[in-house]
Design a protein around this nucleic acid. Structure first.
Lengths: 109, 109
DNA sequence: AAACTAATTCGTATGTTTGCGACATACAAC
DNA sequence: GTTGTATGTCGCAAACATACGAATTAGTTT
């Protein structure tokens, strides 16, 4: 995060961070896979995406650091799943933004 | 956009681009200002944000290139306003994502 | 037309993100 | 314990994002 970012309203900063989390198609794809529960095994997720294992792992860690997914070792595999509570928080952040009332009375462009 | 991004589903790519647009607090702040119509004059927007005029201008251009805001010269000033249609499209993209049904039956993490 | 003002673009510095091969770790099976 | 398999981390390179001062453009005022 750039230093200047800290000078904005904290709610704005958090929403921006959530948006950044969703700003890569691989991460959205992972979320969708986990929501659909096609599989939550790390290797299977990597096989579904057009990226190397190393890169997918990086995206998984990013989602995990943000608290949006949880991982659990199960023998040789790692099972991932959505953290539903965090997903709800992010959803609420965006709903707040999209529920903005738009006043365009004075604007004629 | 990285070359690999093109290998994902186009809907996913577009949603990721919309998320990227919202991934900086300055751009969210601009959207909120324009929605509230406190002012749509470029200089006034810059005065509201903890960034230089040059940087604000850059964020404005980014929003404009994405079609989310429109600008109109009015004498020495430039009036900006939200493109409400585009805002609705972005809103619908996120609503689609957040309306995902979550199946966590098989996942025990 | 000269001086002024608002907005944008240019050039540049700095930091962040994305992507991957190679290496490391950890458990499983033989 | 050696071999094999699944994951994750490291180090690097390329691309992208953020920020700003200085220069530029375009309109206004005198």
């Amino acid at each position: 995060m750039h230093a200047k970012t800290a000078e904005f309203n904290p709610d704005l900063q958090e929403l921006a961070l959530s948006a950044k989390l969703l700003s890569h198609p691989a991460r959205i794809a992972i979320i969708k896979l986990l929501a659909a529960q096609k599989s939550c095994i790390s290797g299977d997720i990597a096989n579904e995406l057009p990226l190397s294992r190393a890169t997918v792992c990086q995206h998984l860690q990013e989602l995990k650091n943000a608290g949006l997914i949880k991982g659990e070792i199960s023998g040789l595999n790692v099972n991932y799943c959505l953290n539903v509570e965090k997903w709800r928080i992010i959803k609420a952040q965006f709903e707040g933004l999209f529920s903005l009332t738009i006043h365009d009375i004075n604007c004629n462009c």
